[in-house]
Design a protein around this nucleic acid. Structure first.
Lengths: 218, 218
DNA sequence: TAGATTGTTAATCGATTAACAATC
DNA sequence: TAGATTGTTAATCGATTAACAATC
């Protein structure tokens, strides 16, 4: 169990943001109730799956009407911890780091990026989306005490391991890892790897299968 | 079944790129065989899972020695369709699109981004990582006939649906969707959604759980 | 040879889906 | 009231893990 925080309902948790998005839209449209059926149709899921997923937030629906929209929004955000601020830093102020810094959606859900770090001297002193860029060398001295919870790791892969060490030394406990390296971290450090290669793999295989079935059909 | 290409072994396919990365490293290091146990240790997985996953590529290992590195690399790339070129376009030449255009790893695995499209007139005519940027308006006329297989969708969410329609009209059959919108596409179009929000959700919940257990412990 | 590692077959685990009574 | 939708309990499905004979 070393290093592994067990999370029950992984797949359910991953679907919640999509639900939240739809429910928020309904809220903006003035709806007060939304049914699991409607959400399911929107996302091409089974209604029973939506109901099961929403159950983990503790919200209770009304037969015939569905779930109370306002309560549901609050409950999902609470469940995800998106109702409070998470101070974060971007480590690697390249295009990807810059893109993530600018995502309004994350800001709306508590992600507060207060600084970025990079090795490129020409970037230091600049800002990306209003976020100041500091020298990566200063990370370990600057970050402790600022209450930074999350480090978003977007450095090139060869620097992932060493940069990760700096992040840990700086006392940041959670790492959102966008590199294709599996990080080795001490116990108590949470890592979520966003593996873009695995997405490309899925897309590639789906394409291959479709192509094959076309060949078979024709 | 409408719109849904069924892919068996989803989780296995998503792990293959990580295996490939490690096996390639072993290859560079001059190794000729690599065992499932070694790969598993590297990635904190069970050896049996690695063996099961590698089995789908058709490669047969040698007891005591492991799997032949060169053959394994070829077999994984073949299985993923990464042994051939996939022409692609980036739709939405912002930071994220720019980041993806520059990823050497994808280039090495057949992803050939031949053009980017954007609405911003100041971007049109420029290049990102050597990829020329054209006006989004010209997508439907320019792209057909070029043999583009993949559209990487990185426009802001409000434009996702309409841009998706253009992509489909242009005859591109696979979409790598980086927006937080569930796209509605005609049958025969493959979509893989890269859902960054779900990653943020997982990280957030893992943080919450860890925090709670710390409170309980102290 | 001895032992590490394989591939196969079976068991377990967890997630999805089905069935259905309860109810607004 | 009638019927759509809920929450619960059970069944199914698929993925992971275990056990173990085969073998280099």
């Amino acid at each position: 169990m070393t290093n592994k925080t067990k999370v029950s309902f992984g797949p359910s948790i991953r679907r919640l943001p999509s639900y939240l998005h739809i429910i928020r839209n309904a809220q903006s449209g003035g709806e007060t109730f939304i049914s699991g059926t409607v959400i399911a149709t929107e996302l091409t899921l089974e209604p029973i799956q939506v109901r099961k997923d929403l159950a983990i937030t503790g919200i209770i629906g009304k037969p015939k009407k569905g779930y109370p929209v306002d309560e549901l929004v609050v409950a999902i955000e609470r469940y995800l911890g998106w109702n409070r601020e998470h101070k974060a830093i971007v480590v690697g102020a390249g295009n990807l780091g810059s893109a993530l810094s600018g995502y309004q959606e994350f800001k709306n859900h508590g992600l507060n990026i207060i600084a970025a770090f990079d090795t490129d001297p020409s970037k230091v002193g600049q800002t990306i989306h209003g976020v100041p860029i500091y020298s990566l060398e200063t990370l370990e001295t600057q970050v402790p005490g600022l209450g930074v919870e999350i480090a978003i790791l977007t450095v090139p892969s060869p620097f992932a391991a060493s940069t990760c060490e700096s992040i840990v030394k700086a006392g940041v406990k959670s790492i959102w890892n966008f590199t294709n390296i599996k990080l080795k971290v001490p116990e108590g450090i949470t890592v979520w790897r966003e593996d873009l290669s695995s997405g490309y793999a899925m897309l590639s295989v789906m394409m291959k299968i479709k192509h094959k079935s076309e060949l078979e059909t024709n």
